[in-house]
Simulated scan of single mutants.
Amino acid sequence: MAAPDHLFNLRNHFYLGAFQSAINNSDIPNLPQEDAVERDCLVYRSYIALGSYQLVVNEIDDSAATPLQAVKLLALYLSNPENKESTISSLKEWLADPAIGNNSTLRLIAGIIFMHEEDYNEALKHTNAGGTMELHALNVQIFLKMHRSDYAERQLRVMQQTDEDHTLTQLASAWLNLAVGGSKIQEAYLIFQDLSEKYPMTGLILNGKAVCCMHMGNFDEAETLLLEALNKDAKDPETLANLIVCSLHLGKSSSRYLSQLKLSYPHHILVKRATSAEENFERAIQSVA
């Protein structure tokens, strides 16, 4: 008989974006050492997702296990944009070390960091071999960023063969359906709907449903879902970005959401695009003035 999975609920909280719930419900007694390290990784990654980078940097010391050191590296990378080069340099050193380079958490963090850098080939170098459901799910995301839904679909099939009902398999399926579009949007919506009936509603699920609604032209329903997500986390960048798009389609002002996004996430792709458009507009005005 398979051993009970003590971390099942904790992982699910994390995958679905219920980060505070993951932290609050992480006190699981008598865990084997390997499970305890995975538990701590999930808790610290939840703190990172909530923006508490410094707490993670302060609490993980140099004697911690490799997976925790990798999580600390992610916190350092996200907390200090000026210091990205030295963080990436440390990451590359660790990946080249035969003793730890193949650690699945280290490869996962490498994939996340290189995906942030938009260096998708470098990310895939470390994630493509898979080995865990999270690595497969990250591969799906990377391939979709590269507009290679064919490769993303292959990864999803591997996940479905491993565990069709796994939360990450469901999420990856929804992401792929959204990317493919057309009649697949309805299927993506039903996956998010199913998750919202099984688990507590999170910003991630609400955003998923809202994006499906926008694809189907239901902008009023999308706005309702996004405002509910904003109530859960007023600074969530995806909620703010989706509200900007939704407001434009509804003919409403999006300036407040854009201002919030600029303040909290100045490097967000939507902020970069808006700034670039403003600069181009200014240049155009100057050229005819």
Rank of each mutant, 00 (worst) to 15 (best):
A188D: 03
E238F: 13
E164M: 15
V245T: 13
D150Y: 10
G208N: 01
L135Y: 03
I191C: 10
H215L: 13
V140Q: 02
D236Y: 07
M133E: 02
N177E: 15
K209S: 13
H126I: 08
T224C: 07
K235Q: 14
Q170G: 06
H147L: 12
V245F: 10
Y151R: 12
H126M: 08
L176H: 03
L138S: 03
K209A: 13
K125C: 10
L250N: 08
D163Q: 06
H166V: 01
D163G: 00
K145A: 02
L144Y: 05
E228H: 15
G251Q: 03
A234I: 15
L240F: 11
E228G: 10
T132S: 04
A210K: 03
D165H: 13
L204F: 14
E153N: 12
P237T: 12
G217K: 01
E153Q: 12
C246S: 05
N177Q: 15
A229N: 07
K184Q: 15
M201R: 13
H249T: 05
S173M: 06
N218T: 09
T202I: 07
L195I: 04
H249Q: 13
L138A: 01
C212P: 06
N128Q: 13
G217F: 06
L240I: 11
T224P: 06
M133W: 02
L138Y: 01
Q170F: 07
L144R: 01
H215E: 15
T224F: 11
L225F: 11
L226H: 00
H126N: 12
D163R: 02
L156M: 09
T224Y: 11
T224M: 11
L195Q: 03
L248A: 11
L243I: 06
W175P: 02
Y189G: 03
T202M: 08
T239Y: 07
D233L: 09
L250V: 08
A172L: 02
L171D: 02
F192P: 04
Q160A: 11
L225C: 08
L156Q: 01
S149Q: 12
E238P: 06
M159T: 03
E187G: 08
N177I: 08
L168C: 04
